[in-house]
Amino acid sequence: MTGVHMRPDDMLLSAFLDGEVPEQFRPDIEASIESNPECRARFEQLKRLRATLQRHDVPELQARMAESFASIQRRVAANPRVGAGLRWRQIQVPVPAIAAAAFVVVALAAVVVWSFLPKAPASAPDLLAEGQDVDVTIRVDDADMERVLEWLADKEMLGEIRIQLPEQQFEIVGEPVLLKPDRFPEDFSE
């Protein structure tokens, strides 16, 4: 109780009637209703309205409840689609179908696991043979290089091949040269 009597407006009284006013404000409102005739009259009006609304319940509610339950059961039984909801929702699955489903699940799992396994690095000719855009650094020997150039010539394709040599043992002489497969290994010797 704060000691200062408030004059609650009608909206506050309506919320108070519904028990929706915070605890700390209730004593003041109760005091106002008790001490202020006008406030009490308005609150009593709201209470009378509620009593009027709630005085007349739905006729024969209990009897109608039982009838409705039976009717719902009949309607559900008569309509298989609705029956899919509760008592009638029992899934019949044949054993071969379960086995097939299990096989599919295992196969899919195997594919997923395999796709995540680390793979051995492919050689440059193999990657090119697969038609992939190769952008990797691969150590090759002379035989591999020959295969790459032969494959490019065979497929009438071009490939940009950057050859890095250990700088300690080699030094760059002259300008970069475009090698043509059909002139391999003459150009290569340059």
């Binding site: 409705s68 719902i72 309607r75 909801g85």
Partner: peptide, 20 residues
């Protein structure tokens, strides 16, 4: 209307039946 209310309640509960 009591009769309409009864019909609507049955309809609501049948919908509920499907997703109980």
């Amino acid at each position: 209307s009591v009769d309409v209310a009864e019909e609507l309640c049955q309809e609501a509960f049948i919908k509920y039946y499907e997703r109980v």
